[in-house]
């Protein structure tokens, strides 16, 4: 197995993470924001796997599982809330939810 240089491997998760961040910032739809967050989390998960691979430890993969669990939990709660929001504001535009400000 040829070793890929560490810096090269990192490009993917960093890009993914950046994509996720950009998604959160530019998308107005709450569902898409949620999805972008998932991308960010997965980027972190990928990073854990790479790190685990680097040190030859299972810890990275364990963490990835934990991340997945979190993502699932968050999505379930998130979707429930999004339904309530939709119900109340009749829109999924995140910018509409700015009742609380100042």
């Amino acid at each position: 197995m040829t070793t890929i240089p560490l810096d090269h491997v990192l490009i993917l998760p960093v890009l993914l993470f950046a994509l996720g961040v950009i998604g959160v910032l530019v998308r107005r739809n709450l569902v898409f924001i949620l999805m972008s967050i998932e991308i960010m989390l997965n980027a972190a998960g990928l990073m854990f796997i790479i790190a685990g691979a680097r040190w030859g430890q299972p810890d990275g993969q364990v963490m990835f599982l934990l991340v997945l669990t979190l993502a699932a939990a968050e999505v379930s709660v998130g979707l429930a809330l999004i339904i309530r929001i939709r119900h109340r504001l009749t829109t999924l535009d995140s910018d509409a939810a700015d009742l609380l400000q100042g």
């Binding site: 996720g20 959160v24 972190a44 998960g45 854990f48 790479i50 680097r54 963490m63 968050e74």
Partner: peptide, 20 residues
């Protein structure tokens, strides 16, 4: 929810880097 999600992602990424 959303902001905590974002912050968690940052947190995790940071942990992953340290671990790396």
């Amino acid at each position: 929810l959303l902001l905590a999600g974002v912050s968690s992602a940052f947190l995790l990424f940071g942990i992953a880097l340290i671990y790396l």
